[in-house]
Design a protein around this nucleic acid. Structure first.
Length: 511
RNA sequence: GGUGGAGUGGCCGAGUGGCUAGGCAGCGGCCUGCAAAGCCGUCUACACGGGUUCGAAUCCCGUCUCCACCUCCA
């Protein structure tokens, strides 16, 4: 986890005590409030919402040019935990997560596949949606598509041109003038002269200057349609026909749904430059305050290196879900601090699975003994102060999970001692904490699915277990163990509990 | 070259001056007909070299190694 220097004071421009003006809806002592690491200032500081009690948040979503992989899900889960924690803290969160549904790669891949670009985009957008659902990522408040916001983009470009921060070099080619904006580089702490040339097409890179970029660092706001491009991938504008540049979309959509200034802008760490730097430059040059806090999540790595497509498709969400339960995937992603690189290996999955089974096992046993608290009780239960403090400290999930395990152990001890009151207290606390992380077992462990096949399986296994129970009653251990071995061979593990034997499918074997 | 990070016990992973997280995997014990689950105990640490301090994984200086961004990328 990267270093987290503390800002000496409150957020610049906010009067001291401003945070206190918001009504405190927390269920635990209000002394602690969320501190987040802000990429722009490179400090951890208190989140003071622009509007008391509300948080506006924009997270860069997918460019739907290929299938989702585990890295995409890491970012999604990281921000999902942030949203859940903000809401649990009593704040009303508006989350915008965009879909970039037109860009050069989508056009190129669709052409290669011989399908319309919009069909290609739609197909992958659905895959992302399914992956998000599978991992329990809450849907955003609004999920705008780039192609539906050309009007807002044109407006933004017009403002930039009027203010002298953008220029048109040819039909449909509109550029941001980096030299016109002294603040360029502020987000990523680069001096403007150190910034490399932007490689946008039709720029100075072709050596002729025909594209008309005034400065190699200038980046495309709008890309004029080329003869070879599909005509339906372009839109008319006062500057000519073309399609949006990547950076422009997010600025336009953030403003459309969140206003000129908003609380949090998030995304994967790789988007910091150039994407977010350019977004900020555009929006601020146009006169908008834009994001007050920048939050970036780290990578999933393999072999110590950044995951890449050359590693094959073994880390595609679709492939992984054939091998591991979705909740285990979520646990693996959510249990590491969002700014730490997450090394992905078979052990990662194994550890997550073992730990998850421990958590879910306690909840299941506790439910058998003390009943099932309703969801409302869980959602409003007091959270242990140490857990809340951990999450308030820049979402220190590892420390928060340590608190979960403390309560889990207390709960297991209470169950073993037959102390139902203590067991129930621990159960509610554990579920409430896990719920904040999107990991409440009661919401994930819904039996074996309730299908006819699983009902039939359950009946058959129970018949076997009845045989075994009779044998055990007669101390016929040979018969009893034979039943258990037979079930084990079929992939069913048996566990004797005070309330009788229970069964479960054996975990997936490691290869 | 510019920018930003990382090196903690077998593995993963917290921890910004003292109270020595947590998980996984070992080992020992309790429980169990035997298991499983659970509980208790326990072994492996802070990249290296200096320094500051009564005391450093934690602060300072230096060294080494690794990674990311600067090109589309979550």
């Amino acid at each position: 986890r990267p270093a987290t220097p503390r800002a000496p004071g409150p957020v610049p421009g906010v009067a001291p005590g401003g945070a206190g003006s918001a009504p405190c809806a927390r269920r635990y002592p209000c002394a602690v409030t969320l501190h987040l690491f802000d990429t722009a200032s490179r400090t951890t500081r208190e989140l003071v919402p622009l509007r008391p009690g509300q948080v506006s948040m924009y997270v860069c979503g997918a460019t739907v040019q290929s299938s989702p992989h585990i890295g995409h899900m890491r970012t999604a889960v990281a921000f999902d935990v942030l949203v859940r924690w903000l809401r649990r803290s009593g704040l009303a969160v508006t989350l915008i997560r965009n879909v970039t549904d037109v860009d050069d790669k989508i056009l190129a891949k669709a052409a290669e596949a011989g399908v319309p670009w919009w069909a290609w985009a739609q197909r992958h957008e659905r895959e992302f949606a399914a992956a998000h659902d599978a991992l329990g990522v809450l849907p955003p408040t609004y999920e705008p598509r780039a192609t539906g916001h050309v009007t807002e983009m044109v407006e933004l470009m017009e403002r930039l041109v009027e203010r002298g921060h953008a220029y048109v070099s040819g039909p449909g080619d509109v550029w941001f003038d980096v030299r016109s904006f002294p603040g360029y580089g502020a987000l990523t702490n680069q001096r403007p002269e150190d910034v490399g040339a932007s490689p946008d097409e039709a720029g100075a890179a072709d050596g002729t200057g025909a594209g008309g970029k005034r400065d190699p660092r200038d980046f495309a706001l709008w890309k004029g349609v080329k003869p070879a491009d599909p005509q339906d991938a372009s839109w008319p504008t006062p500057f000519g026909r073309g399609r949006p540049g990547w950076h422009l979309e997010c600025s336009a959509m953030a403003r459309r749904y969140l206003g000129a200034e908003f609380d949090i802008h998030g995304g994967g760490i790789d988007l910091r430059f150039p994407h977010h730097e350019n977004e900020q430059a555009q929006s601020r040059a146009a006169g908008d305050g834009f994001a007050r806090t920048w939050v970036h999540s780290a990578w999933v790595t393999q072999g110590g290196a950044k995951m890449s497509k050359s590693l094959g498709n073994s880390l595609l969400v679709g492939t992984l879900l054939e091998q591991v339960r979705p909740v285990v995937l979520r646990y693996a992603l959510a249990s590491v601090h969002y700014r730490s690189m997450l090394e992905w290996s078979p052990e990662t999955v194994h550890d997550a699975e073992a730990t998850w089974d421990r958590l879910a096992g306690f909840v299941r046993r506790a439910h058998e003994r003390v009943g099932t608290p309703d969801d409302d009780e869980v959602a409003t239960a007091d959270l242990p102060a140490a857990f809340a403090a951990a999450l308030d400290d820049d979402l220190n999930v590892s420390a928060a999970l340590a608190v979960v395990h403390e309560h889990l152990r207390a709960g297991n001890t209470a169950l073993a001692d037959g102390d139902r009151a203590d067991a129930r207290t621990a159960l509610v606390a554990v579920r409430a904490m896990l719920d904040v992380l999107g990991l409440d077992p009661a919401r994930w462990e819904t039996g074996e699915g309730g299908s006819r096949a699983s009902a039939a399986l359950d009946a058959l296994v129970r018949a076997e277990l009845d045989v075994r129970a009779r044998a055990r009653a007669e101390k016929d251990w040979t018969t009893a163990d034979a039943v258990r071995d037979r079930l084990a061979a079929a992939g069913v593990v048996v566990e004797d509990a005070p309330t009788g034997a229970r069964w479960a499918l054996a975990p997936e074997q490691e290869d």
